[in-house]
Design a protein around this nucleic acid. Structure first.
Length: 276
DNA sequence: CGCTTTTGACCGGCGC
DNA sequence: GCGCCGGTCAAAAGCG
């Protein structure tokens, strides 16, 4: 992922004959400089995503230490079970209910996706390649932005649900929470890729049903393409880091504002040099 | 006309 | 028991 393609498309260096003898060498120098900067930025991006993954692993480790063998959700559910049932229940039935809860938890796979969108884009539509039907919208207490509720409408038996809400901290970021697993093949790859052009997936967060717990492996099944990553097992792999970096870079290179700004900055530099 | 979206009503869980 | 809150339902409206 280099910005060379961008530079080649934005500035066709061969389009016009060079008027100044120094211009060519200046352009080459500038190109070298931009390439070096590009490399540096790429390294920075890789470093950032690496740090992010390390941090996430640490959080998971901490949670495991805090609640060995049981996540918060299971704990809360167990608490509820104790309240509902009699306190003098035998330990074996307790264990059984625990087992059941854990099974339930692994069955209900939940993942959270952060999607960067245009600030002006007020829709709560995340085109991930599946067909969704909106069945509700609600304003929640912790976030003034409404939360939209979607069901997978591709197959009537598909149990997958999705909640989409704008982030409180950054309104341009959509938070999509996927609940369950699709029991049918992916519907449209084109839609998904087009959406990735419009926005960038900032991260896939393994999202146990309650925060701060170490849940089971959670899969975001954004189709079986290269954009599909099992968040818990692949998030720290070089492939995922590369994917993140590529997504960020492709978003930048596909952004016309970024292109024009870069072109303006470079041409401005050239003008300065030629004026001198 | 059929499908999707909107939106107020309703329901169940939870805390007090 | 009551009130709050998140999630879901379903009738009405919108749209192609």
């Amino acid at each position: 992922m280099e910005f060379n393609g961008l530079l080649n498309t934005s500035l066709d260096l061969n389009a016009e004959p060079l008027r100044f003898p120094d211009e060519r060498s200046a352009l080459v120098d500038e190109l070298k400089r931009v390439n070096a900067e590009n490399k540096r930025l790429t390294e920075m991006l890789t470093e950032v995503s690496k740090n992010y993954n390390e941090l996430q692993n640490r959080i998971m480790e901490c949670n495991k230490i805090k609640n060995p063998g049981m996540d918060n959700t299971a704990a809360s559910r167990k608490r509820k079970a104790v309240i509902n049932g009699s306190a003098s229940e035998s330990s074996s039935s307790d264990e059984q209910s625990c087992k059941k809860l854990r099974e339930e938890h692994t069955k209900a796979k939940i993942s959270r996706v952060y999607i960067q969108t245009q600030a002006s884009d007020t829709s709560l539509i995340v085109k991930d390649g599946y067909q969704w039907r909106k069945y509700g919208q609600k304003v929640t207490r912790d976030n003034p932005c409404p939360r939209a509720y979607f069901k997978c409408s591709y197959a009537p038996t598909c149990p997958v649900k999705k909640k989409v809400q704008r982030s409180v901290e950054d309104r341009s970021v959509l938070v999509a929470t996927y609940d369950g697993e699709h029991n049918h093949p992916h519907t449209s790859k084109l839609e998904m890729t087009s959406d990735l052009n419009r926005s960038v997936i900032l991260g896939l967060v393994p999202c146990p049903t309650s925060l701060g717990s170490s849940g089971p492996s959670i899969t975001l099944d954004l189709t079986k393409q290269k954009t599909s990553y099992n968040s818990s097992s692949k998030v720290s792999t070089p492939e995922f880091q590369k994917f993140l970096v590529e997504q960020m870079a492709s978003t930048l290179t596909k952004d016309p504002n970024f292109k024009s700004a870069l072109a303006a900055a470079i041409s401005g530099k050239f003008l300065q040099q030629t004026e001198r």
